[in-house]
Design a protein around this nucleic acid. Sequence first.
RNA 1: CGGGGUGUGGCUCAGCCUGGUAGAGCGCACGGUUCGGGACCGUGAGGUCGGCGGUUCAAAUCCGCCCACCCCGACCA
Length: 561
Amino acid sequence: MKASELFFPTLKEDPADAEAISHKLMVRAGLVRQLAAGLYIFLPLGQRVMDKICRIIREEMNQIGAQEITMPILHPAEIWQQTGRYDEIGDEMFRLKDRGGREMVLGMTHEEVITWLAAREIRSYRDLPQVWYQIQTKLRDEARPKSGILRTREFVMKDSYSFDKDEEWLEYNYQRHVKAYTRIFHRCGLRFYMVESDPGMMGGATAHEFMAPSGAGEDEVALCKCGYAANLELARSMVYSPNFPEAGREEVATPGVRTIAEVAAFLDVTPDLLIKSLLLITEQGEPVLAMVRGDHELQESKMARVVGSYRPAHPEEMREIAGAEAGFIGPVGLDIRKIADDSLKAGIFVTGANKDGYHIEGVVPGRDFDTGYADIRRVKPGEKCPECEHPLSLERVIEIGNIFKLGTRYSESMGARFLDEDGIERPIIMGSYGIGPARIAAATVEQLSDEKGIVWPAAISPFEAHLVLMQPADKEQAAMAAKLYGLLSAAGIEVLLDDRDIRPGAKFADAELLGCPLRLTIGKRSLAEETVEVQIRRGREEQKFPLGEAADKIAELLETL
RNA sequence: CGGGGUGUGGCUCAGCCUGGUAGAGCGCACGGUUCGGGACCGUGAGGUCGGCGGUUCAAAUCCGCCCACCCCGACCA
């Protein structure tokens, strides 16, 4: 492909509305353009990257026996009503009516459609297992699209769904997906972790996420060198037990002293001797008191698993329910549902007295108040791994893929059943497995770019080599570049020939911005020496190859990039 | 949905406080000199100043409402 014919509008300056590195670079390199919040046009270069990623995904999915299908994106509301998600999901789903007034939705995922299909076509254990997948656009009315291509309202997704007769077969298909995903992300050149994750709205039992470390990520994971890795939403840890003083239970005046830090300083104790009490109101309108140790924070997703969705109480509600304002609330004498973090099972603590300006010292959970216990605290770096007790580290990550054991949640509600070997009718056991190709692209840019621009791994680069022809007007140079282009093309290497009549500096700058793994240069020097200069984009190391050997050498080099 | 910010040629921005009829750099077109790291000189095209309404002799500028986009939070298969 000639650069003079390729549409790739590059920008010298960062776009004003971009924050994330991948967003800035993908716009600057002419890969994408934004149409509206969370809606992107993929330009030719961006399309090439997406095509390559999708091709890798197809190869690896086919490799594990998955079969590609295409499903409608426009769905009748009815199938979503059948699984109950029509009402559960809310504003995130685009809803509309057709001309006949029938309720329709735009698919944000395809469990309903694929289960509808399975319900009709799968009858016997002999029909199982099946793994079907799609690479299609999904639509979600995101509350907050952000970070360029990382979180959009319309996005392509590879989703596969497994159908099995029992848990063992599900586990088998789950593990095959783990293998396929690992290969896919390796081939795309990404650094990633597989972590335990919260099944969330997919409603299954076991789930893992594939996470690419990047500061632009929206999630955090806890990692241990023993291999323990979990999304912070459910990560566990072990915490030390502080030395508790032998204080008797006593109410103390703490006028105007509200925050943990203030109370600890006022009473001259460490924060880990305090109980932080948070008054919450559940979706049903019931008050719940959440308690964590003073040096800990509430992990909201963990709390939500215990009590369902909730919100913090308003100041008036605190007054009404606890009889005190924020900062003086505590569990003693408070007759509402209580959930304390596991770290509060034993000890002697300071708590709010439910009376403005007062705290209580010497409070013993279980003796002075009744409470339920659960792991509801947020893991902090340095806390001990629950598996091996080494210190945990935290890292920010981009979710690039996930795998869920769905079980029978969808097959039950949609009547997807089969007859087993004994002639007994049973629901199909399902799994669901997603990958976001655009996120792979963005995560790669985040992980590998440098101050000059993008650094693509060869496997997903829009072109494998960027051939800079210094002076297109020079017949000899042009002929040499054409020859090299021919040799490389014959060797199956995708080359972008920059034959534009612009200054060399601009060509080099564009080449580095686009980020093809190899930059080749043909100029006066190459003419004199019969060589081609080769720069490896990553690290920008240069070398020269004689023209005759160039194709072989370059092919060889590309294997390593 | 709550909080914050920004909307001015294609892009990045200045001008707004203190109202007087729109600028710069880059990009683009043409001519010339250049040509191995985003050149230089000259000429030129290009703007409903996000929208609507108000105040005023006069609004990019002041006031009100609305819209769009970005960031933080809530939310997130």
